[in-house]
Design a binder for these strands. Structure first.
Lengths: 204, 204
DNA sequence: GACAAAATTAAACAAACGTTTAATTTAAAC
DNA sequence: GTTTAAATTAAACGTTTGTTTAATTTTGTC
């Protein structure tokens, strides 16, 4: 699908509003006002409010880069691969936090007939990639055999959202002053700590 | 606040519906139909839809038992305390999953002027308790010094919600057939694995 | 059984919702 | 400059929303 700049602006603004106030909590008029367009333009461009949500999903998922997927072929040690896996995962989470927020709600919700199969496919691919890295590490005798590789993405995503959604609490706790400092915390300390947790689960 | 059985039923049914479909996605008429009462009864009993949400929050938080808090005084080793801490935490999460779902959304949302201070207080108390157990373990020379005790509740809550909200995915992955089997997985394997992750972060 | 208070009802309320209409403006093509 | 299609608008559409009203039924008390 090809979108003009106005359509892309609508997509981005409604992504932000849906993440902030929820799909049901955001009205067409909210979006129109924020995007400085007429309410009719949303139906005109996307058909309906639900189809706008679908457009957001397709638009975002198709934009997910293949960086993670290319990790497999890199010639680095399994430990380094895990480190990179976690780092890339967290970066992607941070960059798409609004989108993950919406997806999270919609998957729980089941109210809308929204198709997340493309999203699920990516998750399955990521899990497969992770399992391969772990198998590689076991062959090299540096990783132990674990029964729960699927818990690793759950820990990364879950802990990240938990921290992000309680931003206020962590601002106080970690003496963070603004969004930039929070981003730094995620990109440095948080990333390192989660990496250690994951490696702790794997290394012999 | 004293509630009669009809009021408690409304509280429970709207808790379930708000968790399933969101606050904005649930209408007064949805609740009235599910609880088999007239729409006017909700305003009559609780004042408004928002005040109903507040009543749910107060009702639930006040019901949180003191079991976790009493852990401090038990005469068991720090390692055993951590095991019990994680186990109790996960049990509480599972028993109140609908409530956590709502709180999670409302905290992110900021749309409603809902008071979660009592909830935050409990979280702070839990974190303090955890820090005390860790300090105890460090004194006994079994725990290392860690900079991030706050990440432990985030890991427990985050991973749990991540797994619970992707139930379908995990049903397939773990060959679970029904809610009962899922509950068993949480109460056994999941609990054990998360305990190991947490202990892995702490033990020397 | 008469009375007062509480519970419950159907109906109505105004406001907000997503969507559609029909008219107007803008842009592009010749 | 005229023509044609696309973009944009204000207004209206029928529903649904949360809430209130006023009437009715139920309940408890003497």
């Amino acid at each position: 699908m090809e979108y003009n700049s106005k359509q892309i602006e609508i997509l981005n603004i409604s992504l932000k509003l849906f993440a902030e106030k929820g799909f049901d909590g955001t009205s067409i008029r909210d979006i129109a006002k924020a995007a400085d367009i007429n309410v009719a333009m949303i139906s005109y461009y996307f058909g309906s409010k639900e189809k706008l949500l679908e457009a957001i999903v397709i638009n975002r998922v198709s934009g997910f880069s293949m960086i993670l997927e290319n990790l497999q072929t890199e010639e680095i040690s399994p430990v380094e691969k895990i480190k990179k896996f976690v780092a890339l995962y967290i970066t992607r989470l941070f960059q798409n936090k609004d989108f993950y927020q919406i997806v999270h709600f919609e998957i729980v919700n089941q109210k809308r007939a929204c198709d997340f199969s493309a999203f699920s496919e990516i998750k399955k691919k990521n899990l497969l990639l992770l399992e391969n890295i772990i198998a590689e590490g076991q062959k090299a005798n540096v990783f132990k055999s674990i029964s729960n590789p699927h818990l690793i993405p759950a820990i990364i995503i879950g802990t990240f959202s938990q921290v992000y959604n309680n931003k206020k609490f962590y601002y106080e706790l970690l003496n963070l002053k603004n969004e930039k400092e929070f981003e730094n915390y995620i990109a440095n300390d948080f990333k390192e700590e989660i990496t250690n947790v994951v490696l702790g689960m794997l290394i012999k």
